[in-house]
């Protein structure tokens, strides 16, 4: 028990910035609490987020505000069909004065990247970004350069305009820790948004923490206790996506084309720990897993044509699994 107490104490100290962050983000972002919470979870768990939602739901504003509140560098990259990898990671430029090639860094050299409409760019550009996400480094010419830490990529996909897009391959989508569906704000929230945007003055977020504190928080998160029962619960959920018939979910067998990869289990455990951190707990409870299950697994499950024909989504499948597997 002493261990958990120690971890709890550490977390109380390390997670103190969460309230400050929420406060600063709340000045600018109204509603979208789930999205902001997931952004913080990904930031603390060293993951990346894929956002899906119609335009105008404060996706860009959220990550920009988060960057401002953390005093970190922010880059927004609009992905277009003519974008080249060099436009993203940088290139070598010939300097006539010095008569040598010099490095020109691309926008990927920032702490927070908003890759807007990632599926509009061709595969090689997507690969360049996804490789930098995975390796946390890029290679330009003969130079291999480390990306700054923390490094969080927030990529958006537009579900309405699918024409002229290059869908992300499953293997690359799998690298995102979470796929968050951003929904419209409630009526009350939209009323407040309306008032805030028509007010004569606007509030800007202050930098309340620095990137170093995030790095320290990541170390503390690793110490959060994850009981064997929770591990089993995570594995049961992930395995139920692969072999549903073994979990009394035979009806899902024809609806699932492929189940979650091991990254699903890893990210679900890491994200649950981060959730516990945000909730200032030194241990993970099933609720943490339940809350993040859809976000972590929805882009890792392939559905069959049969499911598509019946308008069954991966969320429906995950919910069915959650409603069948016993909570420890």
């Amino acid at each position: 028990m002493a261990d958990i107490r120690e971890i709890n104490e550490k977390i109380q100290v390390a997670s103190s910035f969460i309230d400050l962050l929420n406060l600063e983000i709340g000045k600018v972002i109204i509603g979208q609490k789930s999205m902001v919470e997931r952004l913080m979870i990904a930031l603390i768990a060293n993951g990346h987020v894929l956002l899906e939602g119609v335009p105008g739901l404060a996706k860009t504003l959220a990550i920009k505000t988060l960057a401002s509140a953390i005093d970190a560098k922010f880059s927004r990259i609009q992905f277009t069909p003519d974008l080249l990898p060099a436009d993203l990671i940088g290139t070598m430029i010939y300097n006539q004065k010095k008569e040598e090639f010099t490095l020109r860094y691309g926008p990927v050299f920032a702490n927070f990247i908003l890759a807007d409409e990632i599926n509009r760019a061709p595969a090689k550009v997507q690969s360049a970004l996804l490789e930098s996400m995975q390796e946390r480094q890029v290679t330009i010419g003969e130079h291999t350069l480390k990306l700054p830490e923390p490094f969080l990529v927030l990529a958006t996909e537009n579900p309405l305009e699918q024409e002229g897009t290059y869908p992300l391959p499953e293997a690359q989508v799998d690298r995102f820790m979470m796929k968050v569906i951003v929904n419209y704000p409630s009526r009350e929230e939209e009323k407040m948004i309306l008032r805030q945007n028509t007010a004569p003055t606007s509030q800007n977020p202050n930098a309340v923490i620095n990137p170093q504190q995030i790095m320290e928080a990541r170390e503390v998160v690793k110490e959060i206790y994850l009981d064997e029962k929770i591990e089993k619960y995570i594995l049961d959920i992930v395995f139920a996506t692969r072999k549903p018939e073994e979990y009394n979910l035979g009806r899902l067998k024809n609806l699932i084309h492929y189940g979650s990869s091991p990254r699903g289990s890893i990210f679900l455990a890491q994200a649950s720990k981060s959730m516990a951190f945000i909730k200032k707990r030194g241990f993970v409870i099933p609720e943490d897993v339940r809350l993040l299950c859809n976000d972590v697994l929805r882009h890792r499950i392939g559905i069959t044509y049969e499911a598509e024909a019946e308008s069954i989504t991966t969320d429906d499948i995950i919910n069915e699994i959650l409603n069948t597997i016993e909570v420890p």
Binding site: M1, D227, K229, I230, G282
Partner: peptide, 10 residues
């Protein structure tokens, strides 16, 4: 029960 099960509390 949650504390006992998931946080090793006695």
């Amino acid at each position: 029960a949650d504390m006992v099960k998931f946080a090793k509390q006695i």
